[in-house]
């Protein structure tokens, strides 16, 4: 029985000796086939104390912030230079910071009263900026106060465009908390989430100030599509604003 000889050779005490090695081999094959599942996981568990902590993420984030800020400043400077080259803006914009001393953000009139007036150089028609973008336009001034017509007031009309598609529209207050953007084109290709900025073609407001985000689109409105815009600046909580003095 030559065929059974090796089997008999393996049997007995020698099988007991080989079995652990066979198991190790099986485990290695399993690791190989699973592309190192166990090893990588083991490594992850063992090296957990040495992982990059929150501090490191914070450094990276702050570096990114610095980079973004620097790029923004650079781009703004560049934009300014190009605009002066084009003579779109004769002088450098100058901003006056003013406190909000009266706030009537709902009701028949939607307006703010600022604690700076004609003595500080404010004039009717100047743009008022809050944290988050355009808030409204100065409606009238007295020597020490200025009343601001908010973008939500039905009397407010501001030329804006959707930055992504570059389609113009008229931002009109309708007496609710959210103004309506009435497009000039039949097919504005805008969709909810698009950012609305002031139009570079407008002479009333400084160009490219962020205004709001499109919340809903009504593409079938007559005579042109309409969009409801959520303003970025929290109008009901404003306490300091900046007025762009030309």
């Amino acid at each position: 029985m030559p065929a059974w000889r090796w089997l008999r050779f393996v049997q007995g005490p020698s099988l007991r000796r080989i079995t652990p090695w066979l198991l190790v081999l099986l485990a290695l094959v399993a690791v190989r086939l699973s592309k190192g599942a166990l090893i990588a996981d083991l490594y992850a568990v063992v090296s957990r104390p040495f992982w990059p902590g929150t501090a490191q993420a914070e450094w990276l984030r702050s570096a990114r912030r610095v980079e973004d800020g620097a790029r923004l400043a650079q781009l703004e400077q560049d934009n300014q230079r190009l605009r002066t080259l084009l003579e779109l803006q004769k002088q450098n914009p100058n901003r006056v910071t003013a406190p909000v001393i009266s706030r009537d953000a709902s009701g028949w009139w939607r307006q703010l009263l600022l604690g700076q007036g004609a003595l500080s150089g404010l004039r009717a028609g100047q743009a008022v900026l809050g944290p988050g973008g355009l808030v409204g336009l100065v409606g009238s001034v007295t020597p020490s106060t200025a009343s601001v017509t908010l973008l939500t007031d039905p009397r407010s009309r501001v030329g804006v465009w959707v930055g992504r598609t570059q389609h113009h529209g008229l931002l009109t207050g309708i007496g609710t908390g959210r103004p309506v953007l009435r497009f000039l084109e039949k097919d504005p290709q805008a969709r909810p989430g698009d950012v609305v900025v002031t139009s570079p073609a407008s002479t009333l407001v400084p160009p490219n100030l962020p205004v709001g985000v499109i919340q809903t689109m009504d593409a079938n409105a007559d005579p042109a599509p309409e969009a409801v815009v959520q303003l970025i600046a929290p109008v009901s909580a404003l306490d300091w604003v900046q007025v762009q003095v030309r």
């Binding site: 009397r155 008229l170 009435r182 000039l184 084109e185 039949k186 005579p223 042109a224």
Partner: peptide, 14 residues
């Protein structure tokens, strides 16, 4: 063209 002519000349609430 889709522009309400009244929009450009309105004094207040519509």
């Amino acid at each position: 063209q889709g522009v309400n002519p009244a929009l450009l000349a309105l004094p207040g609430w519509r």
